[in-house]
Computed example of a mutant assay.
Amino acid sequence: MVPPRPRRTADPAPAAGPGRPKDLGKRAAILDAAKRLFTAQGYEGVSMDAIANEAGVSKLTVYSHFGDKDALFAEAVKAHCERGVPPTLLEDRPQQPVRERLTEIATAFYAMISAPEAIAGQRMLCSPQVMDTALPQLFWEAGPRRVQDGLKTLLDARVAAGDLDIPDTGLAASQFFTLLKGEPHARMVFGCGCSGDPDMTPEAHVRACIDMFLRAYGVRG
């Protein structure tokens, strides 16, 4: 029996099999393309072919990475939220004063929800074509719920340390982000200006929200 010829360096590499890792560069390009197109054209107006063309990959590659358009939409939302409020931002830093810690999170969150693509996405989710589909739930699970759960964990740690007095940290996390969105975010979604008060800058808005939150849940001397 003749032994198999050793492979030479010039031989072509084997094709990627199902167990091989995906190309992270292509995945990132697909996500960026999806975010741009969903923002500009809405969910219904975008096809997987268009996303593939925008990303410079084949449609098969898009399906290989994400399975279907719903999953791609959810991953695009998750990527946007993780870029604006990365998981490391929600980690507790016990040595940092609680007001300073919450202000960092609030500032990043407010900047994220005020971004043009976030406003466009909010309007898309409120459209009649989308409201009765699975997309709003996909959006909630991929973005807001992750951020809210992360803050709850941080609040739990601060309550245990005696820095805050919160009977229900899940509710408090929801209230925190609801305060931050408030009227300014609603006005941006409606397209009638970022705030009813021209003197209420993003910094002032964040500071007012933190003040209210700590008046409710700060430890009394």
Rank of each mutant, 00 (worst) to 15 (best):
P18W: 01
K69D: 00
A160F: 09
T201R: 04
D149L: 15
Q175N: 13
L72M: 02
E203K: 14
L171T: 15
F109P: 00
R158N: 11
Q122M: 14
V62A: 08
M188S: 14
V77H: 01
D168H: 09
E91N: 07
A71K: 14
A33C: 13
A172L: 06
P21D: 03
L214E: 10
V98T: 12
H65I: 01
E91F: 05
A40L: 07
M1T: 02
R93S: 08
R215W: 08
H185E: 08
S195V: 08
M200W: 06
A142V: 11
A33M: 08
G25T: 03
S47P: 01
A74M: 02
P128G: 05
P6H: 01
R123W: 03
P14V: 10
M131D: 00
V98E: 09
L154Y: 01
D165W: 07
G17V: 08
G84F: 11
F73M: 06
A28T: 05
M1S: 06
A74W: 02
T153R: 11
G162E: 03
S58W: 06
E141A: 13
H65W: 04
V57N: 03
P136M: 09
M131C: 00
A186F: 14
A115G: 06
G191F: 05
T61L: 09
D92K: 06
G196A: 13
D168S: 08
P12M: 06
V46Y: 04
A111G: 10
F190G: 10
L179H: 14
L72W: 08
A76V: 05
V159Y: 07
V219P: 01
K59G: 13
P86T: 06
G45S: 10
Q122T: 15
F73K: 03
T88G: 09
A28H: 03
D197A: 11
L180D: 05
A118E: 15
A40Q: 12
P167D: 12
L102D: 00
G121D: 13
T153K: 10
P14H: 04
A13R: 11
T9M: 00
K22V: 10
P87K: 07
F109Y: 15
M200K: 14
L164T: 04
L60G: 07
V159T: 10
R93G: 00
A40W: 06
C192P: 00
A16H: 09
E44H: 09
M112W: 12
R145F: 09
A74C: 07
V130T: 12
T107W: 04
F177Q: 07
D11V: 00
A10T: 10
Q137C: 04
P128L: 08
D211Q: 10
D165A: 15
S47D: 01
L125V: 02
R5T: 11
F176K: 05
L24T: 11
S114R: 14
R7H: 07
P136L: 08
G182I: 13
T39F: 00
